[in-house]
């Protein structure tokens, strides 16, 4: 277990994605209040995720979303081992009282958060389903989290994440993602949250610059699905 990166904040400080102007802080007037509703739709990123692992069994996949029956059953059938981390809940537990983003500068809180999530051996995971949780990390936290994900993924392992694209919204819907088929996902609405920042394609490429490959898929519901390969 010595390889586990305890206190992965040593990776912090590598850069502020918002600082170069490519990513923009979340601000501006609310054009309209987004509706919270469940959506079932095709997911090209998910299809890509499973295409890579086609025919394989016994993989270890980390799901950073809320534990649920659908995803558990899906990976059971495929013969994979699934891990849940409940990333957003850990975020709320560590930073949720008071100013959510200001609290992400507090070292004690950061330490508390890091003790709860992404504590795996290096190269120990075959895939990470991050879903939409990275949008709620401050730039410095985001940098550290992505670096940690890079470390715990196998070479060739994939990461699937989702970003909202509508910059007019101050708050965006947060979902629980339920896999229905290799290319289909159900988005179960949870709450509206203020994102830390909005991302352009270029800024996302910078966020994942240490990975070998980044692919983007735009969806009709104003989401940008991203598949990243280490």
């Amino acid at each position: 277990m010595a390889a586990i990166r305890k206190g992965w904040n040593r990776l912090f400080g590598g850069g502020d994605v918002a600082a170069d102007g490519a990513a923009s802080p979340a601000k501006g007037p609310i054009a309209e209040k987004p509706q919270l509703q469940d959506v079932s739709r095709q997911s090209s990123a998910l299809e890509q995720f499973f295409l890579t692992h086609h025919g394989q069994a016994g993989l270890t996949i980390l799901d950073l979303g809320v534990s649920n029956q659908e995803n558990t059953d899906f990976f059971n059938v495929l013969g994979h081992k699934l891990r849940y981390d409940n990333f957003v809940r850990s975020l709320d537990e560590s930073f949720g009282d008071g100013d959510f983003y200001a609290n992400q500068d507090d070292e004690d809180r950061i330490e508390s958060f890091q003790s709860k999530v992404l504590n795996f051996d290096d190269d120990s995971l075959d895939g990470i389903l991050v879903w939409d949780s990275l949008q709620f990390l401050s730039p410095a936290m985001l940098e550290g989290a992505v670096s940690q994900m890079h470390s715990i993924l196998h070479k060739g392992g994939q990461l699937l994440t989702v970003f909202h694209t509508d910059e007019k919204l101050v708050e965006i819907p947060s979902y629980s993602y339920r896999i229905q088929a290799r290319n289909r996902v159900k988005l179960v609405s949870r709450t509206l949250r203020k994102p830390a920042q909005y991302f352009s394609t270029r800024s996302l490429e910078k966020v994942f610059r240490n990975f070998d490959q980044v692919k983007f898929f735009l969806t009709q519901d104003s989401l940008r699905e991203v598949i990243v390969r280490r």
Partner: peptide, 16 residues
């Protein structure tokens, strides 16, 4: 076999 209800908080690995 496993069943997980909505509203449960689970953090860890699941292996059949």
């Amino acid at each position: 076999k496993i069943s997980i209800e909505e509203g449960a908080d689970l953090r860890g690995s699941l292996e059949m």
